[in-house]
Design a protein around this nucleic acid. Structure first.
Lengths: 263, 263
DNA sequence: GCCCATTGCTTGGTCAGACCAAACAAGAAA
DNA sequence: TTTCTTGTTTGGTCTGACCAAGCAATGGGC
């Protein structure tokens, strides 16, 4: 045993995992593409020889991953269709794991710094006028004298997303969006608890404008550096000091109650 | 309507989504932590007033996201337990979406460059002797004169993962692992189709050693630059030229057949 | 002949109830 | 005391049923 690998418990494959594997095969082999329709659930039951429940559990997983989109009816849009909406599933996954403290805030900041530095460099190289206009619009919203913290947070997010999209890299964009959304609530909390909100707001405005300008003149090196600094500085100055020992310490009582709905 | 947002179809919440939302609430509020057990499925049925199928579909999604781990029986390990295994779910999600060509190879390379550059910098700052030893072991395997392409690919992956882990950032590590695993098959294909395999192998060996040495001496700047260059160069020299018009063009026939198992 | 309401089929959404097998605990037998 | 048996809890799976959303074909009314 040269490998230090743990004795992985034998993978008791459950039925839905087998179904999942079948569908994955088709996708990985390129036989199922975006827009293709899967056979109806009842037909898959016969084809794969498993119960509808197993089929449905597999489809649910794919749906949560943004790979599938299901609609009832008989139209051309009905049934289970292969889709491509990674960000929602990514966001959900990252948000839960961040909440479970698998991913400390420090780590999230590091990841954002790496990803968004890359985005900014790409954006500086290939942002179009339209891209720059969208960024400028976000800046304008954040520059409004009476901007609320919620509005600021929203347009802050959009600004960073706009940069990622201008870079033209879909994977980096989706990862950026997912990570940013996953910490959206955390950042908003930080904004609210902040004592010197107006000072910090002005500082963020200045940094955002500098980033925009660097991208506008196509200075990739500078744009990347500014974004990286922007993210790290904000975390260092604000999140870390404001967010100490916040949530998670709530009482563990009455966790399960009030059904979401009665059939 | 200042927003260019598409008319999002009304979110017809399905039952399992409501169940999912309930559980998420508890996690986001910190009331459910890693190691906690959910009530048994049959109990959740009564508590939430929905069918067991709906409960199970929600649990399936969480399980696929690496948030849950289910075991039968009555022991202390049984039932549905909140877990923390993000990489598997992340890998699965990214692999499918990469296969669906939502994420072109070029984009994946860019993401890897950004993430692994960050990893390498962190590793240079804080790698322990044990970390360096693990990397060296991977290098030794790849340096073996009779190493197969499969072995090389495997230890190549491990080497990059070891760097990420040495950096101590779990989010970046998991993203790195997920992305690397998602393209594992692609890279292996590239290795096999390569004409001047031995030359490329030697080049990779040299680059790997240089990266290891830079991390060993704590030169973060150099380590990050080398890794980024390493990834970009390999893609530029090899993957792009070798992998033109490969998979995905298979015939669409006999897609559904041979049940995985009959009950 | 054209338009529109009706009818029926397909499809996912949901539920109820049943049985199986794994895993453990408690008691009975050696 | 040790070992075997039995029972209970829990997830895993299947069957069969019904509902509602859409669409398509039908057919009557204009």
């Amino acid at each position: 045993m040269a490998e230090p690998t743990i004795w992985e418990p034998v993978p008791r494959s459950r039925t839905y995992e087998l179904v999942l594997a079948r569908i994955e095969e088709q996708i990985l082999a390129g036989k199922l593409r975006v827009g293709d329709r899967l056979p109806p659930e009842r037909e898959l039951v016969e084809l794969l020889g498993v119960s509808r429940a197993a089929i449905r559990e597999a489809l649910r997983v794919l749906e949560a991953q943004g790979v599938l989109r299901a609609r009832v009816g008989t139209g051309p849009d009905s049934g289970s269709v292969i889709a491509a909406m990674p960000s929602a599933g990514l966001t959900q996954l990252l948000r839960l794991h961040i909440a479970l403290a698998n991913f400390p805030v420090k780590d999230v900041v590091e990841a954002r710094a790496a990803l968004e530095r890359s985005s900014a460099r790409l954006a500086a190289d290939q942002a179009t006028e339209a891209d720059l206009a969208r960024m400028a619009e976000c800046l304008a919203h954040m520059d409004a004298p009476d901007v609320s913290r919620e509005e600021f947070n929203d347009h802050d997010t959009r600004f960073h997303v706009a940069i990622a999209e201008a870079g033209g890299n879909r994977l980096v964009t989706d990862l950026t969006v997912a990570v940013r959304n996953a910490v959206r609530h955390t950042l908003l909390t930080a904004f609210h608890r902040m004592e010197d909100w107006e000072d910090e707001r002005d500082r963020l405005r200045a940094e955002h404008h500098a980033i925009h300008d660097a991208i506008a003149v196509g200075d990739a090196e500078r744009a990347g550096g500014l974004v990286e600094f922007h993210i790290r500085r904000f975390h260092h100055d604000v999140v870390r000091t404001v967010l100490q020992s916040s949530e998670g310490a709530l009482a563990q009582s009455a966790v399960w109650d009030s059904p979401p709905r009665q059939q």
